[in-house]
């Protein structure tokens, strides 16, 4: 008896409704979304990224990201043909306001690389969480339960990609949710919505009709830090070997 009452108190009404909509699907907000039908990832086409910073601003607007921290950011690489392993990288304010123009370098190339949580299938961050406050959902999105996180920071240390941070006012771990509140409603992520060139594409690997499959078959695609064996699900097309 006691347990039931406590349970009702814990599941705030709004959350309970949303939970129902996720599982069963309600019209308009989440039409028949079933978690096990999806396996989410993202495709990033480096050759299309123009470094405008739209994705960074969109993410901050959509997800209330604190200043100075980033759920997604853009890096500008400059590598010369002499120092493949020593690129010069900048990301002023995460590339939020774009990048200062650069002129041609006869001895090297410039390019942009957008970064975000890789929503790894075997993620080191969820592995180390001592309490189960971060986890991968049945549809392949790594999320953080911010009502449960103690803010120990172990997951931040465990992420090889620097995608996590401790929220300065909530004092819990925070990172990209792959706009879970959008993709469960049939929308794309805020960063993909705002990307003007299609350099970022949300991908559902379980959907055989998703163009990601055709793309992966016809392009040379990489993931970041494959040696970390994290099962990263953010795929990069045309990625230079100097990118880390």
């Amino acid at each position: 008896m006691n347990i039931t009452r406590r349970h009702v108190l814990l599941l705030l009404p709004a959350a309970a409704v949303a939970w129902k909509s996720v599982l069963a699907g309600t019209p308009e907000s989440a039409p028949n979304y079933t978690m096990t039908d999806h396996w989410w990832g993202m495709l990033i086409d480096v050759s299309k990224c123009i470094g405008c910073g739209n994705c960074v601003r969109a993410c901050q607007a959509e997800n209330d990201v604190p200043d100075g921290f980033f759920r997604t950011w853009v890096e500008e690489y400059h590598r010369t043909d002499w120092h493949l392993d020593r690129p010069q990288v900048i990301s002023p304010d995460g590339g939020k306001e774009g990048f200062p123009p650069v002129s041609e370098d006869p001895d090297g190339i410039y390019f942009f690389v957008p970064k975000l949580c890789n929503h790894c299938a075997d993620s080191p961050c969820t592995q180390v969480c001592p309490v189960g406050a971060t986890f991968i959902t049945p549809d392949g999105v790594v999320l953080i339960d911010q009502k449960y996180c103690m803010g120990c920071g172990y997951c931040v240390q465990a992420c090889p990609y620097g995608c996590r941070y401790i929220h300065p006012t909530k004092h819990v771990a925070d990172k990209c949710t792959l706009c879970y509140h959008r993709i469960t409603k049939g929308l794309t992520t805020a960063c993909c919505e705002a990307c003007p060139t299609g350099a970022r594409q949300l991908a559902d690997l379980k959907n055989p009709k998703d163009p990601i499959h055709e793309f992966l078959r016809t392009h040379t695609v990489h993931i970041l830090k494959p040696d970390m064996a994290t099962g990263a699900k953010v795929f990069y097309n045309d990625l230079d070997g100097s990118v880390r």
Partner: peptide, 20 residues
């Protein structure tokens, strides 16, 4: 799994800003 399943619904209920 080893987490609070209700958290998924709570995160899915975050407000939208971009309409699409």
């Amino acid at each position: 799994g080893h987490y609070r399943a209700a958290a998924i619904g709570e995160i899915a209920a975050n407000p939208l800003h971009f309409a699409g």
